[in-house]
Design a protein around this nucleic acid. Structure first.
Lengths: 220, 220
DNA sequence: GCCGCAAAGTTGTTAAACAATCTGGTGGCC
DNA sequence: GGCCACCAGATTGTTTAACAACTTTGCGGC
């Protein structure tokens, strides 16, 4: 919201803002976004908005059809499962690389994050646990030192999928979640890439299994 | 990905054309592309070109800096190695999924492609071998039935990397290339995901090892 | 040869306009 | 009543012209 850097272009400001709005879940899936609405909302010209929309469409935040405008993204159940499966593969690979390449400092940070999660669980502080969980996965990603897979991971639209199928666990941590994180970190500390990948695959796979079990909301 | 509609927009035509040009290697890496040149070359207005460039920048075909325009992409050696490593992970994962999910028809197609490659090698027909090689990898990708990883694989910019560091083998097939393909297909046929992934990882890894061995051209 | 500065070049952005296409509603017809 | 053709309004695709903001280039002075 803040008019932060005057050094940047209006285009990239609007891109950031609109992307944030889309990630926030302010729009239902498949909501039509008209250029006229966006130009008045962000007070930019159509040309600028169109460039922003091209980029968001390319990234998959919205879908675009010729002459029919742009809609917020909606995922079928099988698309959601496909994305979650890809996330499994990618994050397992990142964990494996992290076991090979994490620096001592990165391992120390992971350890600290895990301790924070244990404390949060002890106090039943869900919000803190969830923050720690996100930090843990981000830190594993960073420790992998694999820019291409990291970027790929970031473009998975996983947050949008979660938002649409929000009955997936991950709000209240599953029993066992903490132990799974411990197993991942242990494998990284002991420099065992295969074990780290397997542990991460098992951990992340729980989200997909949860989705497939209870089918999600009824949606075209 | 397919524009099923024969009625398409000028924007997407220019996008396809310019992308093809970039992939063809017509420009040296890091060549500046000015909007004025592109508008005259493709005979569209600046607005249209700008949208095309936003998309190409998002996909990584070009890099874009505020107020400084757009340049064709250039890869440092470490970026190239990073991309090749990611390709190893992704294609190994796809081969593993293919071993689980390939239909009989897809396996038959793979078999036919491999036979074509054997024939090409017998006749020392490099072009035919190379075509077969590309087809083989495309078919494995399709047989994996994993849309997200397949799309990710397609966005790797691997062709651009190869073009910049063109001393990597892959022109004249390495000795052993054919045997590696046979091993991959065998693992898929026998429904052995781990073996398929390992075989593919070994096969694809040869390109990266070749790059790292002879360092590529001297380039900042 | 180096520095600063004006000139030229290029990008960022807007506004207005029109064609092409899509959407919604109206009325006729069976 | 339900279905269809057709029209009007809304929306997107695209262009032109313009100007501000920024970057690069070349020149003259020191």
């Amino acid at each position: 919201m803040v008019d932060s850097d005057s050094r940047t272009t209006r285009y990239s400001q609007v891109y950031e803002e609109l992307r944030t709005v889309l990630l926030s879940g302010a729009y239902e899936p498949n909501t039509r976004l008209t250029e006229a609405d966006l130009t008045t909302r962000f007070e930019v010209s159509r040309g600028t908005i169109r460039s922003v929309l091209v980029r968001l469409a390319q990234e998959g935040y919205v879908t675009s059809e010729a002459n029919r405008g742009v809609r917020t993204r909606s995922f079928t159940l099988s698309e959601a499962a496909d994305i979650l499966e890809a996330r499994e593969t990618l994050e397992a690979a990142l964990a494996g690389k992290a076991a090979e390449r994490a620096t001592d400092r990165e391992i120390a940070e992971l350890r600290a994050t895990l301790e924070g999660m244990e404390a949060a669980q002890g106090k039943s502080d869900q919000a803190a646990y969830s923050r720690g969980n996100r930090a843990f996965h981000q830190q594993v990603k960073a420790a992998a030192h694999q820019a291409t897979l990291a970027r790929t991971y970031d473009t998975l639209l996983y947050p949008l999928v979660m938002r649409q199928y929000r009955n997936i666990s991950a709000q209240h941590p599953r029993a066992g979640s903490l132990a799974e994180h411990r197993a991942i970190l242990l494998a990284i500390i002991t420099r065992n890439p295969d074990a780290a990948a397997a542990a991460m695959r098992h951990h992340v796979g729980s989200a997909r299994r949860a989705l497939l079990l209870d089918r999600g909301p009824v949606r075209e």
